[in-house]
Design a protein around this nucleic acid. Structure first.
Length: 307
DNA sequence: AAGACGAAAGTGGTTGA
DNA sequence: TCAACAACTTTCGTCTT
């Protein structure tokens, strides 16, 4: 299944589909070609009708993004009535009344929340697996009554953020904030709250996970990207990364890598796409130079530019 | 004139008494 | 619950290219 055959940036055909992250990456120039992948394919193949009967599932797939896991039954609308006689008609109304009573506050809340969740996740072009996870987290949160006293939207955003982290598909709090119109602080707060209350373990995100996206928005080459990843790895070896914000590290590594590869970007440009300030980049950058003996390479490039 | 640099003061969160 | 603390931000003046 391919939407894009050629990289629009460099024309290369060496495209790599990272299915888990929902990104297509050009191996030649590092551009993230397409990051709104939807998997329309069937994951099975059928060769005859016997196979078809065996393999096809009936009905919609079970999903947490449906408020009742997609398994509920609706008593129909009035437009279905034309085929019913008198008795059946009264039975219909009775059943429908019941269903309305059964629709508790929780279900109504879920219905609303999940449509919000879908909205935000499609805005951020998150893969379905993350959306599913977020919906699961949200459902658990509702069942535990954690939404009380918090806005539904902020819990949705928090659940999505947690799901992103768990799937190593990092989005920054800023991005979540932009997509959901909730303040970054608030999202962070609810995120910590629900993960604590639900006992969800989340490892600190790896700075390297941010590199492809940042590098792509800065139009940096694949070599620069892998250079940045190397820098991050060696930084981890000398314990420069613990306790620091991963986005700052990713930004600084990318800045240095671009410098070394002669694709210089200003600190401001890098800072903007990474959602940190220039000051943070400078601090990380300085630490990197101090500890990783990169000065030589930088000086080499500087000399080259002069001569 | 733009970019890089670094000092100083402020913010929000964590930790430990 | 409060204070100390680390990381990060904002702001601003100075140096470099």
């Amino acid at each position: 299944m391919t939407f894009v055959k050629k990289c629009p940036e460099c024309g290369g055909i060496n495209l790599f589909w990272n299915k888990e992250k929902g990104e297509i990456i050009c191996r030649d120039c590092g551009l993230v070609v397409e990051d709104k992948m939807v998997d329309f394919g069937q994951e099975w193949r059928e060769f005859d009708s016997a196979d078809a009967a065996k393999l096809r599932r009936t009905g919609a797939p079970m999903s947490y993004t449906q408020f009742d896991q997609g398994l509920g039954t609706d008593v129909g609308k009035k437009s279905d009535l034309y085929q019913l006689g008198g008795k059946a008609k009264s039975k219909f109304f009775r059943l429908r009344k019941w269903q309305q009573r059964i629709s508790t506050a929780i279900e109504r809340n879920l219905k609303l929340a999940l449509s919000e969740l879908k909205r935000v996740s499609s805005y951020l072009r998150l893969p379905g697996s993350v959306e599913e996870e977020a919906a699961r987290i949200y459902t658990l949160a509702v069942q535990k009554g954690l939404v009380r006293g918090r806005s539904m939207e902020s819990v949705v955003a928090g659940a999505l953020y947690a799901a992103c982290r768990r799937h190593d598909v990092p989005r920054t709090l800023d991005e979540l904030g932009e997509a959901s119109n909730i303040e970054k602080k608030e999202i962070g707060r609810t995120y910590r709250f629900i993960t604590r209350e639900l006992g969800i373990k989340i490892l600190p995100s790896n700075p390297g996970d941010y590199i492809p996206r940042f590098a792509s928005s800065l139009k940096l080459s694949a070599e620069t990207q892998s250079r940045a990843v190397e820098i991050i790895e060696s930084a981890q070896d000398v314990e420069l990364t613990s306790g620091r914000g991963p986005t700052g590290i990713a930004a600084a590594a990318l800045y240095v890598a671009a410098l070394i590869n002669g694709e210089k970007r200003t600190q401001r440009e890098v800072a903007d796409v990474a959602g940190v300030t220039e000051v943070t980049i400078r601090n990380r950058y300085k630490e990197l130079l101090d500890r990783l003996k990169l000065e030589k390479e930088i000086n080499k490039v500087k000399k080259k530019n002069r001569g």
